[in-house]
Amino acid sequence: MFEARSLTKRYNGLVAVDRVSFQIQRGEILGYLGPNGSGKSTTINMVVGLLEPSDGSVNLDGVSMADDPVACKRRIGYVPEEPYLYAHLTAGEYLSLVGGLRGLARSRLEPRITRLLQLFALFDSRYTALSSFSKGMRQRVLLAAALLHDPDLLVLDEPFSGLDVSAGLLFRTLLQLFVREGRMILFSSHRLDVVEKVCSAVVILHHGRIAARTEMAAMRGAGAPSLEDVFAHVTGEDDYTDVARDILAVMRDR
């Protein structure tokens, strides 16, 4: 089980994340939603150990990130929101770098990389620098890198951005099969339609605090509000018509 307990992050007195707590059970995909600037990425950086929390703790199967960050990080796979990669490397070289840093022996790593490149439809571009890759291709490289070491927890920050329809469908199926083996996923996204289909529970963050937590099963019943309705209600942005009208007015102004 993964548990974030009272996670708080302050920057010079400004509270970016305020006492956020949630759990992910084995076999569960937890959706992590919130408008821009709500503290999603900060929470995720704390979960994967890139950022130290000001307060609170992160535990993976009872092992605390603060006490043993190496053991925790070994079991986490991470796909960041922005596809920051070493763009001068090829996909194979990048996966090789990540695998090597994870301590995977070259004899095991090479066939695994080749197979992953084939399955993620990147094999034909294996000698092409990542700088020439589209956003979707980069996302596929990042996902392959996150899966390379067989993690227990997958932390995904906007993993579907830039993916085409078929890659999106593949990813969705992959995630569902991944958790079926008793693993966990923390899934942060703005794509409510995808979250609705993939996740078993959802946490909505607003102004750095958890504004709602809901099980997806409860929403699928007749007459239940959609995730979009819940999100708009929780974040207080029910109607965007006026803003859209104002934009058009600015556009017409000569």
Partner: peptide, 18 residues
Amino acid sequence: PLELRANWVFRLALDDGL
């Protein structure tokens, strides 16, 4: 430095023993 924002892969794999 080269692409500092990409160095998260090294941060994630930090290990005193290695």
